[in-house]
Design a protein around this nucleic acid. Structure first.
Lengths: 210, 210
DNA sequence: CGGGCTTTGTAACCTAAGTCACTGTAGAAT
DNA sequence: ATTCTACAGTGACTTAGGTTACAAAGCCCG
């Protein structure tokens, strides 16, 4: 585990902290689609991402979903932290977007390290910072953009975290994450194809130029 | 200042911390409508609310506004904290919703206290926690609710923070904060009046039963 | 009192997006 | 090869909400 840890966090954590993480953390590998957290769960450990990506989703009372953002290498889930400290339930769902490696830290260590290690405090504050800004961005897109722009932004972001210009999802799946309907997404995708920006296939699409 | 401090924060901060706040903080009173922070500002001090309420607004590139949430007694602005630590610009605008009393703390103290006082750490984490949840709620409302529900929620919340069932705003002002148009808001308000839930007047309205 | 603001009410219209219903089709399964 | 099924395409229609335009109050102030 030490090797992975070094690569992703070596530059930001102090040596003492690295050693502690190495001792109490457990390396975990999960496949694409693996559900790491469900709404209403109590959380007992906190993830540090080594590789891959995790998508964070929000759901309303009627089961309608909405993609909030992705977590990537070197990041952690601020929601988890707030849950742990506040001893409250998860407000979100977390699903592996790609095959993902992460280190799980027992919650108990969190507060201890916050008092003990400056680099940990900075990391935690930085996570909150990043997350708040991601949430603001998501909110902007929803409040100020129409569906066509949101779709384009979604495709770009998805291509980025998956490091591929092929997006392997059905229109229905895309519709879920954008909280829209299949018909609307099909319509807009077709329009993008006619503009020469993407190429549609069964079960996947290719981004040509967005 | 010590008196105000005691009333709002006496129960949560350690004595040593209270003394420090008393020494480096400055009491500030601002009238309703006072702009405390503008998008793009660099922040050099952090507010602790004593009384009143502050509304936090987001704006897109075209000048369209959106109300995010209110800060109230005993709370602070997480955005400010992230800005200070990350040394970045403000992403939001802050305007006093009512006459407001607050204590301003120089940014420099923040990190020092985080290492030194457990109660301060808890306060800061708790603020992040509350703010993340408020943002999620706002996002829910926008993503999953229609304008009529959003309007009702808005009126209720506004009545709550103002501690009054009279809301002194023009339809235009309400429209701005909900990122809608005056005509739409007038239409929906009229509908609420016809349902006997509110009473409309020039420049203000009264909530009867929501 | 009588202009000259600002605010509110309303009708007519437009557009984005959601819904329903149906067809076409690629690919897996038999 | 034929059938079956999930996925995709499309027309027709509905609705929420935005836009334009204008009339009617309310209100300030000379």
């Amino acid at each position: 585990m030490l090797k992975e840890l070094q690569e992703s966090y070596g530059k930001i954590f102090e040596e003492g902290l690295m050693n502690e993480i190495n001792q109490v953390g457990t390396l975990k590998e999960v496949p694409e689609g693996f559900k790491l957290m469900e709404i209403g769960d109590y959380i007992k450990s906190m993830p540090l991402l080594i590789s891959g990506a995790i998508k964070i989703l929000r759901e309303d009372g009627d089961g309608d979903e909405l993609l909030l953002y992705y977590l990537e290498r070197g990041e952690t889930c601020s929601m988890t932290m707030t849950c742990c400290m506040g001893d409250s339930k998860s407000e979100i769902r977390a699903i592996a977007e790609t095959d993902t490696k992460l280190i799980m830290i027992p919650v108990a260590k969190m507060e201890e390290w916050t008092a003990k290690y400056k680099s940990w405090r900075n990391f935690v504050f930085d996570s909150y910072h990043t997350r708040l800004n991601e949430l603001l961005n998501t909110l902007d897109t929803i409040a100020f953009s129409k569906m066509d722009e949101r779709l384009i932004a979604y495709l770009k972001e998805k291509a980025r975290v998956n490091k591929s210009n092929s997006i392997h999802n059905t229109h229905q799946e895309i519709a879920y994450e954008l909280h829209s309907s299949r018909v609307v997404i099909s319509r807009l995708l077709k329009k993008l194809e006619r503009m020469g920006k993407i190429e549609l296939h069964r079960n996947y699409l290719k981004i040509l130029a967005l």
